[in-house]
Simulated assay, not measured.
Amino acid sequence: MSNRNTQASKAAARERIRAERERQKKQEKLRRQLIVAGTVVGVLAVAGGIGYMAMKANEPTGWEAAKEAKPVAPAHTQGKNGTEILIGDKNAKETLEVFEDVRCPACASFEQSSGEALLKDIEDGRYRVRFSMYTFIDDTPAGGEGSKNALNALGAALNVSPEAFLKYKAALYSAKFHPEEQVDTYSKDAELLKVAATVPELKNNKAFETAVKNGTYDRWVMDMTALFGRKGVKGTPTFMHGDKKLTIPQVPQQQMTQAQYNRLAQANFRKMIDKEFGPAKGAGKPDPGKGGSKDEGGQNGIREGEKDPTASR
């Protein structure tokens, strides 16, 4: 082989080596770029994941989330977001405002003793009633969410009809179903549906059941809850006529049966109403100290020798 051919061969070999090294350098550079890019994407993905998780962690849940849900008010409501529950003859000249909380034991006592008298006045057109349903007991040391959950169910009943609302409210407050204040029974949909089964308009009503289970009116509940403190009302039950707070006379603290207590409490409610609105049309002078009740069992509830607490009223 000539010297020239040897040199040419060596030059060609060196060129191939140089080209290979350049190719390898480019591949290494590309590899490093891909690694860096992948690392950045990974970091961004991790950061994004952390940010997403943090965002999710900070998102409101439960009843707080309900505040931001789309407003859905039951039928038969009025006012902003449907927060006015006004029931009765639209031609009635007066409006009685009743403030209640479904878990409130004093409200249950009122409903059990005087609820029928209130309903009769509504039916007779004596006045309309605006119900403001609060849920503050859920936020007391008793805790829970029974007031709010029951109010969603009441909204579902109101969506059916005002009559269904009134009957269901009476059932929820009844001695048969109303729980102790510390027991959050109404936080369970199954319990609310069990009570609803006693109301003809709600029994086997699939639309009502769906609204209860899905929390259809949860946002409405929170809008109602936000009214707490309206007209300065901080407790329940409270009764107002315009800006005037009405007061039911207290039943004397003495031994008596539940039936006798209910009768006296209803008489005192009627006294409050008669004083504010005047006597009901065609009403005779009641004598709540007399008469009996099938569930008294013949007991002498007022102690012998004690003066009838209603005799001088």
Rank of each mutant, 00 (worst) to 15 (best):
L227Y: 05
G49P: 01
G79Y: 06
N5V: 11
F277A: 01
N152E: 00
E68Y: 15
Y127W: 13
A11E: 15
N5S: 14
E306K: 14
I87H: 02
M53K: 12
Q254G: 09
Q112S: 11
G297I: 11
M222K: 14
K90G: 04
R263C: 04
R23I: 06
R23A: 14
A171E: 06
L154Q: 00
V36R: 14
G42S: 08
H241V: 02
Y52E: 08
K90V: 12
K244S: 03
K26T: 02
D308K: 07
V102I: 14
P249A: 02
F277V: 00
S174D: 04
V251E: 04
L264I: 12
N205S: 09
K25A: 10
R14G: 02
P252M: 10
P141K: 12
D89G: 09
T39W: 09
G229Y: 07
Q258I: 08
R126M: 03
A142P: 00
Y186P: 01
K26A: 12
N58W: 05
A19S: 13
S312P: 04
Q258A: 11
V41R: 03
L118D: 00
S2L: 00
K176W: 06
A65S: 11
G42V: 02
G292N: 14
A311V: 13
G291P: 13
E181L: 09
R130K: 15
D184I: 05
E276G: 04
T6E: 10
L151W: 03
L158W: 00
V183G: 03
Q266C: 09
